[in-house]
């Protein structure tokens, strides 16, 4: 087990309206088995002992699935590994390193405090059509419509998005297209999603624009940083869905 001493440059911002700044902290005795967030826990414990305000950051399941954790670490969303911050371990760093820790940066993700941002824009996009309208109890037998394994797997791949927002954080345009396209794709591929296909694509894209996310330049940064390896092909599929919807739907 190696222990290390680190310098942390952490974004501190008391609330949404306040102006934030990077503050420097030294931390010692960090061992390489710790997860990155456990290192942050140790820092917070130290700060509290000294009577200083602990650093606020989002986190919950700490097993890479809830999508709560965020943090841009040394310029990369979720840090140097293609995983979530909670699954990043300190063995990815070495003694004496300086680590910059910043919040997701996007107009649509305002900072709440320190490293915590408001991602409710993602929810509002889902409200705009990320569902199949089926009332409880009115479903037919689950095996009534066969769905080829390839399609089911592909839909699953799109559905594994954890809604963390790393795609937005990584994109030079703070675009949310990987997130939005993953949901549109999942339902566009499945027979259950067909009835509302046009409405969904139009509604979700319109809401995405309204939230103030940027456009897609197809650089592939979102896909490269996505902890769940959501493919950029989803974005092409969304473009297709959107155009098809615009050209064929009855919404004037």
């Amino acid at each position: 087990m190696n222990t290390m001493n680190l310098t942390l440059k952490i974004w501190r911002q008391p609330n949404t309206a306040a102006k934030g700044e990077l503050k420097t902290y030294s931390i010692s005795g960090i061992n390489d088995h710790m997860s990155f967030l456990e290192m942050m826990d140790v820092l917070n414990e130290n700060l509290q002992k000294k009577g200083e305000d602990p650093v606020v950051f989002d986190h919950d399941c700490r097993e890479g699935i809830c999508g709560a954790c965020s943090l841009v670490i040394n310029g990369r969303p979720h840090g140097p590994q293609q995983t979530t911050t909670c699954q990043l371990h300190m063995r990815s760093f070495k003694d004496g390193d300086t680590i910059y820790i910043e919040p997701w940066r996007a107009k649509a993700f305002p900072v709440i405090k320190d490293l915590m941002v408001n991602r409710s824009a993602f929810d509002r996009i889902q409200h705009a059509g990320g569902y199949v309208s089926v009332n409880t109890g009115s479903a037919q037998d689950a095996n009534a419509i066969p769905i080829g394994k390839e399609i089911a797997d592909e839909a699953f791949n799109s559905a594994t998005c954890i809604g963390c927002g790393a795609c937005v954080a990584a994109c030079k345009n703070a675009s949310a297209m990987l997130f939005v396209s993953a949901k549109i794709s999942q339902l566009a591929m499945l027979p259950q999603g067909q009835a509302e296909r046009n409405r969904r694509a139009e509604g979700m894209v319109a809401q995405m624009d309204q939230e103030g996310f940027g456009a897609c330049t197809n650089t592939g940064a979102c896909e490269a940083e996505c902890p769940k390896q959501i493919s950029i092909s989803n974005i092409a599929r969304m473009n297709r869905e959107y155009l098809g919807a615009k050209l064929s739907s009855n919404a004037v």
Partner: peptide, 11 residues
């Protein structure tokens, strides 16, 4: 696109 990220990253 630049309006979508009013504050950039330090690193």
């Amino acid at each position: 696109n630049s309006a979508a990220r009013p504050i950039g990253y330090a690193v």
